[in-house]
Amino acid sequence: MSKLPFDPIDEAQRQWVAHGWEDAAPGMAAVTSIVRAHQILMARVEESLRPHDLTFSRYELLQLLAFTRTGALPLSRIGARLQVHPASVTNAVDRCEQRGLVKRVPHATDRRTTLAEITDPGRELVSKATESLNREVFTALGLDEEAIGELTGVLKHFRQAHGDFS
Rank of each mutant, 00 (worst) to 15 (best):
L65P: 12
V89I: 12
D94A: 09
E47A: 15
R104C: 08
S88I: 05
S132A: 14
M28H: 13
G142I: 13
A43G: 15
A129R: 09
H52Q: 06
T139H: 04
P51Q: 02
D120I: 11
E131K: 01
A29G: 13
L75V: 03
R77S: 12
R135H: 12
A80C: 01
K103E: 13
T55F: 05
R36W: 10
P51R: 05
V105P: 10
E124A: 15
G79A: 07
E124V: 14
T70P: 01
A116S: 08
I148L: 15
R95A: 13
I34T: 11
A30G: 01
E131Y: 00
E146V: 12
A140F: 02
H85F: 07
L151W: 07
V31Q: 10
S48T: 06
G79S: 07
R111C: 05
P74C: 01
V105Y: 10
P121W: 07
T152W: 02
H162T: 12
L141W: 06
P106T: 11
A147C: 02
T32G: 10
G153Q: 04
Y59V: 04
H162R: 13
R112C: 00
S166F: 03
L61M: 10
E46S: 14
V84D: 06
I40Q: 11
A161D: 10
G142L: 13
R111V: 14
C96W: 01
E145L: 07
R95F: 04
R99E: 12
R99W: 00
Q39W: 06
V35M: 14
V126T: 15
T109L: 12
G149S: 05
I40G: 05
E145V: 12
E117K: 15
H162S: 02
R95G: 09
L64R: 11
G79I: 02
E136V: 05
L75E: 10
L82C: 05
H107N: 15
